[in-house]
Design a protein around this nucleic acid. Structure first.
Lengths: 239, 239
DNA sequence: GTGTCGTTTTGTCCCCGGGCGCAGCATCCG
DNA sequence: CGGATGCTGCGCCCGGGGACAAAACGACAC
């Protein structure tokens, strides 16, 4: 009876609406304070504190005290992958005929530390079609042309190579097709945000995951990656 | 608030000890009746029936009525993959210093429809090292030599190719290294069981997942795949 | 030092999810 | 056709998990 119980308790950490809301917010990739997470989940700070202690105990999040704040973030990308696949499972169980989460989220969002949604899927497709990536053991590696081109574009390829995985497929929960994960995808996401091509949404909770392309971003993404995105038009998720 | 709730309800299906026990039993890959699952989970048939209805509603399992029995099995390999990764998460949270689930389970077991444990990991390593497989888009493909050799060994390669994925890595929860999943892995598992090289454990629950090599199996696995396994020595998991 | 802010601990209350037994229904057996 | 078997729906009961308020604690600012 040992293992089923452990399986159950691992899932139980995610199974609570308030904890799920916090985890969703953390899926944006940034660290958040206990107070922010409490507000996001719509519960009292004391309640949130107990939940966060449970999540930390289950190795789903890690805490980092700084001054009178405590910053929480997801423990690692494995946790993010599990959350995404569970989202996919939920979607599969009740395929919504109407997408209820706001168009912005579907257009472009972050998945832990990389890009997802239509943008993420298109990005992967663009890189592969242009011969920048080729299949490798358990994922993708850069071709010679791809490596040169990435460096020229300003991607920190060296940092990407230090990651556990350079580039791998990560199933997109809304598009049902893979987008790119791993060190390269992280570097790309960082680049787009640093250059101001994409901007994070100010909202809370799930809406926090959405990113919207700036006018310059629309142009650059088309030029650099051959990705067609619309400028910020969709409404943010109502959370 | 829509999506966090859905994430939570998807996880909640797994979060219950009784349901988790049933899912674990189904991870052996065979279909089981409602009564068997009730006994496995140690609950009354009526309770089990309610749980199974919930699992079916959540698209985690599928039911198939035949006579006065109802056979349940996991809905698909995505579900199996999610369950395995949650097991890994649980293991990560509380790394047991002593493996509490019985040696047999760790030596060789099934993971949905393919082989896992030390045997599964060694099998993958053997095939790769001997040049039978090479990396491909999102997994592995057979080399020319590999194809010929697999057919000669009696593996139903044609059936394996019809699967959604021919061969891909599947993280092994106990070994923390990948074993082989996909159509090829399924065919290999089928072969080993059909030829009597491996025999399923008679137990219930988690123990059901264990497979033990017969004396002939030990020899054949070494000859055919270069895999060293011990004959049935470990005790079955106490469940 | 004193006030404020963010977080956690403690205590208390309340609600609902899950347990079983029983009855009902379908199926197979002789 | 009657009895045994397998599964499910209904009703009732119980226990524990999670909610908040209040208070304690530590850190920062002035």
């Amino acid at each position: 009876m040992a293992t089923p119980t452990r399986l159950a308790s691992a899932a139980a950490l995610i199974a609570h609406p308030a904890r799920a809301a916090m985890l969703q917010a953390l899926m944006a990739g940034e660290a958040l304070t206990a107070g922010e997470l409490a507000r996001t989940a719509g519960i009292a700070p004391s309640t949130a504190s107990a939940h966060l202690a449970a999540l930390a105990g289950g190795a789903l999040v890690v805490a980092h005290a700084q001054g009178r704040h405590r910053w929480f973030r997801l423990a690692n990308d494995d946790v993010a992958a599990i959350l995404e696949s569970l989202m996919g499972l939920a979607e599969l169980a009740r395929p919504a005929r109407r997408w209820p989460h706001g168009e912005a989220l579907r257009t472009a969002r972050t998945c832990w530390d990389h890009l997802a949604g239509r943008l993420g899927v298109a990005l992967r497709q663009g890189l592969v079609e242009r011969g920048m990536l080729r299949p490798a053991l358990g994922g993708w590696e850069a071709t010679a042309a791809g490596h040169a081109w990435l460096e020229r574009t300003g991607v920190d390829v060296a940092a990407a190579r230090r990651a556990r995985r350079f580039a791998c497929d990560c199933m997109d929960w809304s598009e049902r097709r893979p987008h790119l994960g791993g060190g390269l995808a992280r570097a790309l996401c960082t680049l787009c945000l640093a250059r101001g091509w994409l901007r994070r949404q100010p909202g809370e909770g799930l809406a926090r995951r959405a990113v919207v392309p700036t006018p310059e971003g629309v142009r650059r993404l088309r030029e650099a990656f051959g990705v067609r995105v619309e400028a910020a038009a969709g409404q943010a998720a109502s959370d």
